[in-house]
């Protein structure tokens, strides 16, 4: 491991709520929360686009009349709410997304391999017990602009991952080609997940919401096989050769 100082990157929003099973849980004061969200989406433009997002209101506990305004605020940021969790609210207007009841864990199911991109653009949020974790194996390269989202296990890519593409895995990310895009491991709250790649040209490496951008990586870790893991809130990038 390199001895040079490691820059600690912390993103409260990402870590605390917005990433967990893609349930967004706003907190008071709302203005500040929204600004935090903006900072996160600025770093990851289009992250929520086309993804089912559940709005968890059990922390904010807003007045039912305020919910529409909040949904609109999120819509203005390109975040479409598919369902709302709020134990204290009995009913919402028909123009609002449906209420979820008795959900312990909300799993948002939208595995999106490159070949099936068009098919499931707007899969609705599903409620179910977490299924057995399973690896998603992708044999073709991931092209710029493509997004692979697999919240239930590892993602294994046999080819390369293009600049401007991203992989979001509940488990670890393994890339047997060159990783030029962004990889998010442990995205549903697993700090033990890791990222492995044959050649590191990544734009961003993240584990459980902690991340490092290409700028923050040791130049010596570029262009070679590496693994990235989380230790004490710090992403370490270590050579494998």
């Amino acid at each position: 491991m390199t001895s040079a100082a490691t820059i600690q990157k912390k993103s409260i929003r990402f870590r605390a709520r917005s990433f967990v099973a893609f349930a967004l849980a706003p907190e008071a004061p709302l203005g500040e929360w929204l600004r935090g969200l903006d900072r996160w989406t600025e770093n990851s433009p289009g992250f929520f686009a086309g993804r089912p997002v559940v709005l968890d209101l059990n922390i904010l506990k807003p007045n039912p009349r305020e919910v529409a305004g909040l949904v609109a605020e999120l819509a203005a940021r390109g975040i479409r709410i598919y369902a709302i969790e709020a134990n204290a609210i009995d009913a919402l207007g028909p123009e609002l997304p449906p209420l979820l009841r008795g959900a312990k864990t909300a799993i948002i199911d939208e595995a999106q391999a490159p070949s099936s991109q068009t098919a499931k653009a707007a899969a609705p949020a599903k409620l179910e017990e977490p299924p057995e974790s399973s690896a998603l194996i992708i044999e073709s390269p991931i092209r710029s602009g493509q997004s692979v989202f697999h919240p239930h296990g590892d993602v294994i890519v046999l080819g390369s991952v293009g600049s401007g593409s991203e992989i979001v895995a509940g488990g670890s990310v393994h890339v047997y080609g060159t990783l030029r895009g962004r990889a998010f491991a442990g995205a549903t709250g697993n700090g033990k997940a890791r990222i492995f790649c044959q050649k590191n040209e990544a734009e961003l490496l993240a584990v459980d919401g902690w991340y490092r951008t290409a700028d923050d990586m040791e130049p010596s870790s570029r262009g070679r096989p590496i693994q990235a893991f989380l230790d004490n809130g710090v992403i370490w990038v270590a050579a494998l050769d």
Partner: peptide, 19 residues
């Protein structure tokens, strides 16, 4: 080259043949 990569992704998903 990056735009070409993006186009290849579309060729693999949006063409009649891909579908």
């Amino acid at each position: 080259v990056r735009d070409a990569d993006r186009i290849i992704g579309l060729l693999d998903s949006r063409t009649l043949r891909a579908e």
